[in-house]
Structure formats: structure tokens, C-alpha cells
Design a protein around this nucleic acid. Sequence first.
DNA 1: ACATGTGAAGCGCTTCACAGCG
DNA 2: CGCTGTGAAGCGCTTCACATGT
Lengths: 209, 209
Amino acid sequence: MNATVPKVTVQRLPVYLRCLEGLSPGQEHVSSDQLAQLAGVNSAKVRKDLSYLGSFGVRGVGYDVEHLRFQIRIALGLEEDWSVVIVGIGNLGRALANYAGFGDRGFNIVGLFDADPAKVGTKVDGLAIESLKNLERSVRSKKASIGLVTTPAAAAQETADVLAAAGIRSILNFAPTVITAPDGVYIRRVDLSTELQVLSFYLHRRRSD
Amino acid sequence: MNATVPKVTVQRLPVYLRCLEGLSPGQEHVSSDQLAQLAGVNSAKVRKDLSYLGSFGVRGVGYDVEHLRFQIRIALGLEEDWSVVIVGIGNLGRALANYAGFGDRGFNIVGLFDADPAKVGTKVDGLAIESLKNLERSVRSKKASIGLVTTPAAAAQETADVLAAAGIRSILNFAPTVITAPDGVYIRRVDLSTELQVLSFYLHRRRSD
DNA sequence: ACATGTGAAGCGCTTCACAGCG
DNA sequence: CGCTGTGAAGCGCTTCACATGT
């Protein structure tokens, strides 16, 4: 059952998890239908997705909310703590550093880094911004495994190189550019201007239909 | 040729566009191979994607950079101007409002809104924050068609309802929750904590392989 | 009676591989 | 010769529909 979870399923699991956490505390069971409605998908998808994690449902009843929640957290690795560093403390980096709802806990920000000497030493949300020179030492000593890249586009690849060299194993890239890293370093891109341009496509398309 | 562009292709077009804009100014032609390398995909995908827009390439030569750039901009609707409003001016909303590289121009922020009376009237990047009561009037008079939702999760659905009622036709939802809108309103979600949890899955998975 | 779990069919995207053309 | 454009094959995800289990 657990061999391979489709990529698309992995992306939906956090959504299911959040829906479960939003259920009224009294509710003990949830059906694939109800979960589907909350998550904005159809119920077959919910059942298939959950079946990759195991057979947690009870026919005629649904899924035990508490148990399912736990199983999804296990599958996503949320029962472990992950240490996160942020590189590039501009507006976005600062916003992320302050982002309280940081993944239902489990993700701890342990370092902020910036190339600008004027920023080094100033504090954001209680954490001092460090020089990039400290990055490798800091990542290793704090066992950080996730890096958020919020630098300008021009600095993103170099930043990724430094993070990879320091032992970071996952990068979330907010800079508007495509970056690469050696095998073993997993990268995801979160790209605002791309998202806006996709919206533009569909707006435009509808207007001229 | 132009009937249907696959969703995944639409999402890659902005990336190609950015790669083209990053080329050295002297370069007149680009091959699917080079573009693929820059965009982090393979060349067959580039050719297929571009073929949905038309046959712009020259066999044995490649694509004319300037022409291709223009055609992608046309396809994405970037030759039009779009007006954008932001609802929820916390850290993230503020960061987005300040985001200069806002989609290579074409996306103009025309309104900032917040429910907190203490924030109303204060300026961000030269634009005054308005009360939600002004939203509908402001959206209509400024012909805004895109709304960015950066409210807390609890307020996101209500915000989307207001935006939809005001005539907004596309929503980019940054709040960590799934929202719905009537047919005709296109929604995309940008979800930080989901992204982190996906990273966690792959980190966890690799550790216990 | 009711909701899950799942083979099987369907669908859309990716990749291959090569004909077509400058 | 080199690179595009594209049928066709391959692959992975979605959806259907129902047997299964309580």
C-alpha cells in the first residue's frame, strides 16, 4: 500500500489535513463525501488518495477523524520537527519570518540571512539577521534541512548553491527564476508573477471567446 | 492551432517568457533545446507547448526571440493592463503591495483593503488602505479584475464572496484554506504551509527509504 | 442500508522518433 | 545538415461503477 504515493496526492494531503482540523471538535467520523466537499475535489479522489496511505476507513461509517489526521501527519512527516532557514530578508522574507501559522508548528525558523551588511544584526521577530558567511556553519549546527529563497532573481541560483553545499535538502524558491540543485536536493518553486500571468491568460481568453 | 492550450502549458508559458527576457540582448534566435535547459524541462515539451500558440519556429534555426516573446505575451494576455486589488494588509499583503517586480508591468495595484479600522487610511507604497465598505465601489470604478486574498483563513471565504459580488473575475488566494466562488470567477491557490508540508513528505520519505 | 476500497476504463500530458523543411 | 512540428505510443492520474464489508 505504501510503496508509491502519486505526486498529486502528496499535494492534496495537506489540504485534507487542514480540512480535518477545521471540523467541529465533536465530530468523530467523516465520509469521503464530506471531506471532498471541504477540500474542493470529488469523493473518488479522496478515497483513492487515502487508500495510498492504508485502509483507514470503515464501510458504512467513514473515517475516524482523529486516526486519519494522525495517519496523514505521519505520512507527511509532520511528526518530526524541521528546521528552516530563510535567505533574503526583504519584504517577502520578513513576511515569511513573521508568518505565525507556520505549518501548524513542526517548522521552526532557525536562521535568517541576508547579503546586505546594513541588515545584518537587526532582528526580525526576535531572530537576528546573519551574514551569508555564517550560513554553512549555522545550517550545520542547527541541523536545518529546509531553505526558503527570497532573494532577488539574480542571486537565487548562487543562494541555492550555497544552501546545497551547506547540506540543505529541500528548497522553496520564491525568486522569479528557475534554479537547479544537485541530485538529492528537492526544489519547489512558488512564483507570484507566474500565477498572475496564468490568471491573465484565463481572463484574456474569456474576454475573447 | 489555438483552440485549447493545456493547463500545464499555460503554467509553463510565463517561465519561457522569463527565460527569453533573460537572454543576452544580442541573441536573435533560440532553439527549443536552449530554452528547455533554461526553463528546466525537456525540448520536446518546449516544442509541443509552443506549437499550441502557432508555428513560430524556423527549422534548422530555432525561434526568433523577439517574435516568440511577443507571441507568448499575446497568448497570456499581457498586452492588456490588469488592475489588481489586495484584501488583507498584514505582512504578506504589505509585501505583495510593495512587490516591485510585479509581473513585468501590466499588473497595476489599484486598491488595498483591510477590515481593521486602525489600518484604514495608512499608506503602503503610496496607496492608502481602504475600508472593506469601499471595496465594491472601488473595484467597479477602477475596473479591477484580479483580487489577491491575503486575509486570515477565517475571513477568506467571505472576502472571496465580496470580491465576486463586486465583479472581480480572478482570485489568487494566499489564505491557508480552500475557498469557492461562483462560475465565471477563476481561483488559484498559493499556499505556503502546503508547500512546506510537501517538502516534509519528501524529506521524510528519503530519510526512511 | 450505507460508505469504503479498487479494478478497469477514460483522459490528458509527456516523451519518442522521425518526417518535413529551411 | 539541423531543428522544428507532430503523429503515435506511453504513462500517470481521474473517474466510474460495483463488489465488499459492517
